[in-house]
């Protein structure tokens, strides 16, 4: 496939992520795909490459499985930490459960009481709470704009898209609340006085309005193809392809730009290989790869090989990241010594 790439490159788009590195206006990059396809590896590699051509890069992961720490071999927390060996690459792992715990402890101190306990049970039961917490972080970043580009390593649960649609939903919800607050404000204040809650109404609604402004801003930024893009990571198999197609269609309905697909874990067996599994798998992968080229004509399709070792640690990630910008060429086995 890579041997005849010179001809097809004129028809297809360049099979590298160079376009992402070149687009200086990009501020938010999402890396997503269903489980086990190599999202973390790709996002870390992309972060490494971007750190060479940008002022500062922040890599955020909302996956409770602490995969960034595993990938770089370094403990990260919910504060942005500089990655060892880099001067401008920072990583952050948002642990939703601990964030909520903190929030609740805070509110208890302020005098939540009974409400606090109820909220605690509720909060842990809500699916997508990871997304909400990650989103709070996003909002903070929007306010401060500290980093030139922010990469999201999304969770494999598939809630990513709900997270991305969160701004829209929240905007509408807040608009309604603002409307209602105008009408029911006085009543609410009386009631809260009766129940003994210390609800400072103006303060609360002021904060809500402020939140709403930020959310609208985030919404606009996510829908702007100059500022935000989504990189789909998949493997060359039917189910992954099906999920990728579904994800791309959903992204289109949310008006989020996507024009890169990384196909991971590709096999390039020797022609004289006698490994039955490799050959059969290679054939299957080629079949689906053809379909990918056929269907996604206006996407950059980046082919990444399956390596013979795990990609852990900064050095491995650096090596792997080179293949994102320089297309991988499988070694010509016929010229090598058979030893």
């Amino acid at each position: 496939m890579s041997q005849d790439s010179s001809d097809e490159e004129f028809e297809k788009f360049e099979p590298t992520l160079q376009n992402v590195l070149d687009q200086k206006s990009l501020h938010w990059i999402f890396v997503g795909g269903k489980g086990g396809v190599g999202k973390t590896t790709t996002s870390c590699s992309l972060a490494v490459q971007l750190s060479k051509v940008r002022e500062s890069v922040l890599l955020i992961s909302t996956d409770p499985a602490h995969n960034l720490s595993d990938a770089f071999g370094q403990k990260f927390s919910k504060e942005a930490t500089l990655v060892d060996g880099f001067t401008n690459l920072y990583a952050m792992e948002i642990d939703p459960t601990s964030s909520i715990q903190e929030m609740l402890d805070q509110s208890e101190q302020q005098g939540g009481g009974a409400m606090g306990a109820m909220m605690q049970d509720l909060a842990f039961a809500i699916p997508g709470v990871d997304e909400a917490m990650g989103f709070a972080e996003v909002m903070k970043q929007v306010k401060t704009m500290e980093y030139s580009v922010i990469i999201f390593d999304t969770a494999p649960t598939g809630h990513t898209l709900r997270f991305l649609s969160f701004p829209g939903v929240l905007e509408k919800a807040l608009a309604k609340i603002s409307q209602l607050s105008g009408r029911f404000g006085p009543v609410f204040q009386q009631m809260s006085g009766m129940m003994g809650l210390n609800a400072n109404q103006e303060d609360m609604f002021g904060k809500l309005e402020g939140m709403r402004a930020i959310i609208t801003e985030v919404n606009n930024q996510f829908k702007d193809p100059e500022k935000t893009t989504f990189i789909c990571v998949c493997i060359s198999e039917f189910l992954s392809l099906y999920e990728t197609e579904r994800m791309i269609q959903e992204l289109t309905t949310y008006h989020i730009d996507t024009h890169n697909i990384v196909v991971n874990q590709l096999l390039f067996p020797r022609k004289d290989s006698n490994c039955e599994q490799c050959l059969v798998r290679h054939k299957m992968q080629q079949k689906y790869l053809d379909q990918i080229y056929n269907l996604y004509e206006d996407f950059h399709i980046i082919l990444m090989p399956l390596l013979t070792k795990e990609i852990r640690g900064t050095q491995d990630i650096k090596e792997f990241s080179e293949m994102l910008v320089k297309p991988f060429v499988p070694p010509d086995y016929s010229m090598m010594d058979d030893s």
Binding site: F238, L241, Y242, Q291, I292, L295
Partner: peptide, 17 residues
Amino acid sequence: SPQDEFANWARLKRKLD
């Protein structure tokens, strides 16, 4: 068949949706 002709199948699905 989505397994054999995924590209065509996906295009048809997009049209249908």
